[in-house]
């Protein structure tokens, strides 16, 4: 649900990073935070456990610049990936404009990826959205690890609707901005259609 403020000439949109636990959602946000100028970003908030696992969400507000005189602001959120935090994941999807799914490329995490996409589909539906139509991109993260599956194999199993798909190494930033841009573009194109 985009928030269009004609008074201050701002468009605010919400992007949620989804995916299994320890897949790199928070690392995506941390990379964006570190590589963005302080004028373009707000404070990054992480509600995490003492062992740095996401407990509720991470949040990063980001200004992309102006479009037709409107400041375009994206609010990036991550969900907690661990299975038992499902209630929190549902809450964070409220009012979402676009989703980035961060898949873990390690072979042993494929089941967790598949389960998490199913969970995303269900939780979107509970919030009145449809994965088939919402702006969406897929990132195969951790491509630098030794035990990763082939990209085409992952694509075959995880790609839902021929959404834009990117290889990523969130720790070094590979694919991080490409994935974000892809969903941001889809959201703006949706806005144009309305």
């Amino acid at each position: 649900m985009a928030f269009i403020n004609y008074a201050s000439k701002e468009i605010n949109c919400k992007i949620v990073y989804y995916g299994p636990g320890l897949g790199g959602k928070t690392t995506n946000l941390q990379f964006i935070y570190n590589k963005t100028s302080p004028e373009a970003r707000g404070k990054m908030i992480s509600l995490a456990t003492e062992t740095d696992r996401t407990l509720f969400f991470d949040f990063l507000p980001l200004d992309l610049g102006t479009i037709r005189g409107f400041t375009t602001r994206f609010h990036l959120y991550t969900v907690p990936g661990q299975v038992f935090y499902d209630a929190s994941r549902k809450l964070i999807l409220k009012g979402v404009d676009g989703v980035i799914f961060v898949a873990d490329s390690q072979e042993e995490r494929m089941e967790a990826n598949i389960e998490s996409i199913r969970n995303l589909e269900d939780n979107l539906e509970e919030n009145g959205f449809d994965l088939k139509s919402i702006p969406y991109a897929l990132q195969f993260n951790k491509r630098d690890l030794p035990n990763v599956l082939q990209v085409d194999e992952m694509y075959r199993v995880l790609n839902f609707k021929r959404e834009p798909t990117f290889e990523g190494i969130a720790t070094s930033g590979k694919g991080v901005f490409d994935t974000l841009k892809s969903v941001a573009k889809q959201i703006l194109i949706e806005l144009r259609k309305r």
């Binding site: 649900m1 985009a2 928030f3 269009i4 403020n5 004609y6 008074a7 309305r194």
Partner: peptide, 11 residues
Amino acid sequence: MRSHDFVLYED
């Protein structure tokens, strides 16, 4: 514009 977009005008 989707009906559930939140639109705020100056007034």
